[in-house]
Nucleic acid binder design. Sequence first.
DNA 1: ATGACGATTTACT
DNA 2: GTAAATCGTCATA
Length: 207
Amino acid sequence: MSVRWSRRDFSAGSAEIAKRLIGSTLVRILDDGERLSGMIVETEAYLGVEDAAAHSFGGRRTARNEAMYAVGGTAYVYFTYGMHHCVNVVCGGIDEPVAVLIRALEPMEGMERMTALRNAGGRRKTPMRHRDLCSGPGKLCQALAIDRGLNGVDLVSSDVLWIEKPATRRKVRLANGPRIGVAYAGEWAGRPYRWWMEGNANVSGRR
DNA sequence: ATGACGATTTACT
DNA sequence: GTAAATCGTCATA
């Protein structure tokens, strides 16, 4: 039996949670009941009102980022670049707008369905490779059918989206470095709040 | 009402 | 390496 992340697990700070999430499993149950999952291999911490890279920088609170102000364990899903979704885990307590972005998964269950979801639209020119299924924040949302319909979902109690702890704590080498796509954030752009499983083929970026 | 801009991905030169 | 795709959101007026 697998153990889900609990409310208490989500109450730590985002840097700590970003590290602890590596090796856990993101589970998604589709409308037809099919179970999809992947091991989290890359995350980014967003530290809240003082973090110039965070959507909640300076206490900004809008319709889009409202979920960031909910209790730890809430899913914050947003739409960006006119075509992609990203999923975050909210950390800490109520009105503490801190979160961890899930950036990449190693596909575990339902890979055929993920491939179909990633090819939806049918105008892809290059064939989908296994390591392209979930190797980026937008990719994994498409592969797991995560969109704004899941924004605000409680990962502690939901029956369609949650996180499971590793069955056995394997030894994994963690690497860390600057976050991706936050060049606008001044001094905060270079801070090493991105973590990944070293050597894993599903980590985002070019090789 | 308008305009600038994304916590990205994909394809092309 | 460079650029297009594509549109919801938010700040400004």
